[in-house]
Amino acid sequence: MILNASGCLDALTAPRVARSLDIYVAKTITPEPMSGNPQPRLAETDFGLLNSIGLQNPGVESFCAEILPRLEELGMPFWISVGGANAADYARVCERIGERESVSALELNLSCPNVDPAAAGAAEIVAACRAVSDKPLYAKLSPHLPDVAEVATGVIEAGASGLTLVNSLRGLVLDEWTLEPRLGRGVGGYSGAAMRPVALAAVYLCYEATKGAVPIVGVGGVQNGKQALDLIAAGASAVALGSVLFGDLEAPERVRTELEQEALARGFERPGEARGAAHRPSAG
């Protein structure tokens, strides 16, 4: 299954690209509108992209009134990513959006490197959201966590249905001559190719810790089918495409086809059969 990473595609400006995904994930929504971070918000680095968008979004009320009805018109499954500053914020958005039948799942963004970290612990936020919504809840975790597997088991106990691993890493780029930060906010979220081993490790450890019992969306630097297969072998049940979409609108279809071929070449009839292959002791 191929999804987009939250914040990396707007289905309303690119409906054809959204429809080429199995599930569309909307950008993170917070209770109140957020105007985001100052310009510049983008800087290229050697192995990836640095962004400081800052969860810019219209707030949950305006989202429900103006954007959600148009997402419903797309006629495809979609998830909404949820953000906030504390457990009550997250719960408020989940409660409001959870009313809508069209929303297949809620992804809790517990990990944005561009806003101040949520004061509450991840498990507390998940529990607050679980109390107000019956929808599947995916906890999106940060690669910064010292023990991602421990947090993963904690959020599952608190009621999360699945995991999304991982959000971007914090990074900094300096201007060539002034040696000042290139981004208006200073530090930003680092995404792209350099994320691959980081995402792979998080998926591997969380799959092990949860014994493969919950779905895991693998995210981080995926640009081709082999890289998607790696995430599946480490334990992902689905793969999300992030910054690759900025430069390649055909990426969902291309990665899906390549993934099927790469899986077949290794003796898996379907890519899903390779799930957890990295954990099996190899025969022989």
């Binding site: 990396c8 309303l12 400006t13 690119a14 510049p40 983008l42 968008i53 900025f246």
Partner: peptide, 11 residues
């Protein structure tokens, strides 16, 4: 500054 040109990145 633009990373995508079609409304995807909010950059």
């Amino acid at each position: 500054p633009m990373a995508c040109g079609f409304g995807a990145c909010y950059g």
